[in-house]
Design a binder for these strands. Structure first.
Lengths: 232, 232
DNA sequence: CGGTATCCACTACGATACTG
DNA sequence: CAGTATCGTAGTGGATACCG
């Protein structure tokens, strides 16, 4: 076992575990609650399955996760490393401009969103939402249409027509919706400006903004307007 | 500019900046106060100079550091990223066993140490300390002997005989000294056990343990004895 | 569902030498 | 001191196919 950095400094040792390609993003998935291999992969779709398996093995060997009964779980050490992932994310939310063309991916957005629905605010009956995203650069492989089938307490994400009647149609510019998701701009403002259009069942249109909890990073305070932020 | 991860998630965007090879360690040097190119390189000696220059350019482009008048400085964003470096280091101190054979490097240890001397506790006059490390695997290129020339408020690290009379001789097992440096074991205990030997001027022998401030990570609380820690 | 095996392409990196 | 230039290579990881 050769050390990448050859330093006994704990920053270097921790970096050998944490600062590998894809690893922070895999850990983010685990922090957000993914447990199965394919489930994790949905949150990191552009990693190859072979490499994902390798990274999971490495994290297991490092004692950050445990693999039992086909589930991956953060150990105690892993949960503390999860706090580092959160601070890194908070830094990104504060100091970068994450919504850029080559980063837009509707799969990821809907995958994240379906975990952040306030199920207790949903009506008792099943609610079906259909999303249509536009403003996606051509040549992108991700679908433009997604469905949420929400039946308390479950929220299922579909990429093929689920066959139920749709209660709410959401038609949105992908970049604008991503900015809403990240808390950079209030959803009602974007609806007013027309970059997000809601139609269908009257109550669903009215209540949808309250169902959607937004990213856990949406609440991160941003630097003052006067401070220079980065375009990275 | 193609995105590494193709995700607008701030964790991914921040990882594109932070979780690159060597970058956390370069940032650690900046956090600890290094400013010049060669100064930074002394704290990251195993990176090639070409790659260090490239990383510094990338960090500048990302707005994490600024290069002015031949000095690199953390920006406001960089200082906040420095907090992430510190938490990562704290995690490493808590959950890893950093002192392993292939990570020992006396250059790094002495380089870090010379920045952590309580100069205000030193005598008025110049004090010269000579370190001799043993227990280093053969084939290691780093010297075994180093000198600190301490003349308030400066502490100079030398790898060649500075020509002054030596006040204090420190002869130590490198691994043991590293453990002391990281706060894993008290210096007086290791001196008692014989893995560190102090000789020379009587007062210097007595006071040396109080001059040496230890790593900034030495004070990190470790998990309870009963909790499993990693050997990574 | 949850992976492994194989193969190949690339590129990031280290080594070395050189420059203002 | 503070880098740049050049070049060869090790190793990383993507693609594809296969398996229990």
């Amino acid at each position: 076992m050769k050390s990448r950095y050859g330093q006994f400094c704990p920053v270097a040792v921790a970096s050998e575990i944490f600062a590998e390609r894809w690893t922070p993003i895999i850990l983010r998935e685990l922090v957000l609650g993914s447990r199965g291999f394919n489930e994790i992969h949905r949150g990191v779709p552009r990693i190859s399955r072979a490499l994902l398996a390798k990274r999971l093995r490495e994290l297991t060997a490092a004692g950050v996760i445990e693999a039992t009964e086909g589930e991956y779980r953060l150990t105690e050490a892993g949960q503390e490393l999860g706090e580092v992932v959160k601070s890194l994310g908070a830094w990104g939310a504060r100091w970068t401009a994450p919504v850029q063309r080559d980063r837009l991916d509707a799969r990821l957005l809907t995958w994240d969103m379906h975990r952040r629905i306030a199920v207790e605010r949903l009506p008792e009956r099943r609610v079906v939402v259909r999303f249509d995203f536009h403003g996606v650069p051509a040549g992108h492989k991700a679908p433009r249409t997604y469905w949420f089938v929400m039946e308390r307490p479950d929220v299922d994400l579909c990429i093929i027509e689920p066959g139920f009647e749709v209660d709410l149609f959401v038609s949105a510019d992908l970049a604008s919706f991503a900015r809403v998701w990240l808390g950079e701009v209030p959803i009602r403002q974007v609806v007013r400006e027309g970059a997000i259009k809601l139609s269908g069942n009257r109550e669903a249109v009215r209540d949808f903004p309250s169902w959607l909890l937004l990213s856990t990073l949406a609440a991160v305070p941003r630097p003052a307007e006067t401070t220079q932020r980065r375009v990275a």
